[in-house]
Design a protein around this nucleic acid. Structure first.
Length: 345
DNA sequence: CTCTCCCGCCAGAAG
DNA sequence: CTTCTGGCGGGAGAG
């Protein structure tokens, strides 16, 4: 049977012109969101039903659902069943992610060499009772660690826990030790959620993403506004990346992208480091005679706070990602046979 | 050419 | 066992 619902554009005037855009995850996600929002909060979403309504195979729904769950709009209830929490749930979830990310940064993990790995190595699970050093505690699935949901959450932390305004997927991939391909999926879903926005980098012209506030609900949310009262203490998005007129530099992350060892050596002045993490807006304070100390790698912080205008800069710091790029965690296929076996038993 | 990223195989997990 | 989940990367469309 044909799908009952299709794209609102419905430019199916000619079936010959097939375009990938019509099948993109972002568009599918938008339709999925519309479907969920129509049902109202706390409604149960069935994967089969959703797949049928959207006219896609089940597999694609899993992708969307996992990413959406990372920011709290959806929650898994049971097999095949998800609960729609509404857009108001995003602020809570994202705020929590920010706290977790900040905590991860302050915690000097022994296994992680830099901040990138701190986020990447973060296991926000299996810390239940009897935490300690049970034999083979990490025997649990590392599969979950590489899940889209975890990756999506770490992607959010990248935006919230650093002062980088613009992040390219390439950089995010190396930071999070993930494949770029996966981040495309996540980014597309987040774009449809209005969490991030794709723009062209002022210097490179390459596409980068920037965190934005979910300023508007697609439907003004009569239903969504039902319990939106608890939302928020404030617009946390405004704290950092939302309205920051600061410079939008891709790689200004050098402040916290230090090796763990380096940070260890300079514990004397480490307080400033971690303090700056929490108060990244310190640059507006620098204008009052900033000659007391210098931020080691963060020298040029006193550059004019001109907005995102064509700020041409060609500084390409990637010292923090070369370490991460060294890793090759996955790949269990030892055999060179890349051919897939069609015929299975 | 590079950048995007859809498709769906198939390995685990759940039932 | 069957069914559900979803990691994973080939390879094709878009720019």
């Amino acid at each position: 049977m044909s799908s009952s619902l299709h794209t609102e554009d419905s430019q199916w005037k000619n079936p010959s012109i097939y375009s990938r855009k019509d099948k993109s995850l972002g568009l599918l996600c938008s339709n999925f969101l519309k479907l969920c929002d129509r049902e109202g909060e706390d409604s149960t979403i069935g994967l089969d039903n959703a797949a049928d309504q959207l006219g896609v195979e089940r597999r694609r729904i899993y992708d969307i659902v996992n990413i959406l769950e990372s920011v709290g709009v959806l929650s898994r209830k049971a097999k095949n069943q998800y609960r729609w929490n509404g857009y108001s749930a995003i602020s809570k979830a994202v705020d929590l992610l920010k706290k977790e990310g900040l905590k991860d940064l302050s915690t000097v993990s022994s296994t992680c060499h830099n901040v990138s790995n701190v986020i990447a190595c973060n296991n926000s699970d299996v810390k239940e009772k009897g935490e300690g050093k049970t034999a083979g505690s990490h025997k649990i699935d590392n599969r979950k660690e590489k899940s889209l949901m975890i990756l999506a959450q770490n992607f959010v932390k990248l935006f919230l826990c650093s002062d980088v305004g613009l992040i390219s997927l390439d950089k995010a991939a190396s930071t999070l030790l993930a494949k770029t391909r996966r981040l495309y999926d996540i980014a597309n879903v987040f774009v449809s959620l209005n969490l991030i926005e794709k723009i062209r980098s002022p210097d490179n012209g390459k596409p980068v993403f920037r965190w934005i506030a979910w300023n508007e609900n697609p439907r003004s949310g009569s239903l969504a506004a039902a319990k939106s009262d608890d939302s928020t203490r404030r617009t946390f998005g405004a704290e950092i990346t939302n309205i920051t007129p600061k410079r939008y530099r891709e790689d200004s992350s050098s402040d916290l992208m230090l090796n763990g060892q380096v940070k260890r050596l300079k514990v004397a002045k480490d307080d400033e480091l971690k303090d700056k993490k929490q108060e990244i807006s310190a640059e507006q304070l620098n204008e009052r005679g900033t000659k007391d100390f210098v931020f080691g790698p963060f020298g040029p912080s006193s550059l004019p706070r001109s907005a995102i205008s064509g700020k041409e800069n060609l500084k390409q710091i990637q010292n923090w990602e070369d370490l991460a790029s060294k890793y090759h965690p996955q790949y269990q296929n030892k055999d060179g046979s890349k051919h897939i076996q069609r015929g299975h038993l």
